[in-house]
């Protein structure tokens, strides 16, 4: 299992658009992908789950990736977050 933390820089936090960009980028990986946000575990492939978590600008979130393609999945996560999630 791989773990890595990121700080969310999107001004309005992970609202629909950035959350949608994130989900689109990772939903086809086989690995299970979870987010730890303030000790709550969220299903990262779920737009609803992410939006419902109310992740704000400046929050730290930890991705937990586990599965056969975990390296590729983590790379995709890094890339999409670094690109600003479409914003």
């Amino acid at each position: 299992m791989l773990k890595k933390s990121f700080v969310i820089e999107n001004k309005q936090g992970l609202h629909v658009r950035p959350a949608g960009v994130l989900v689109k980028a990772i939903k086809d990986f086989d690995s299970s992908i979870k987010i730890n946000h303030n000790d709550k575990i969220i299903e990262a492939k779920s737009l609803l789950g992410i939006m419902g978590a109310c992740i704000k600008c400046g929050d730290t979130i930890e991705f937990q990736v586990d599965g056969s393609d975990e390296n590729e999945a983590m790379k995709a996560i890094e890339e999409v977050i670094e690109s600003g999630l479409g914003e």
């Binding site: 689109k24 779920s46 609803l48």
Partner: peptide
């Protein structure tokens, strides 16, 4: 509408 497709397929749902 693209967002709607994503939501309808959302695994939580």
């Amino acid at each position: 509408i693209e967002g709607h497709i994503l939501l309808a397929e959302d695994i939580e749902i």
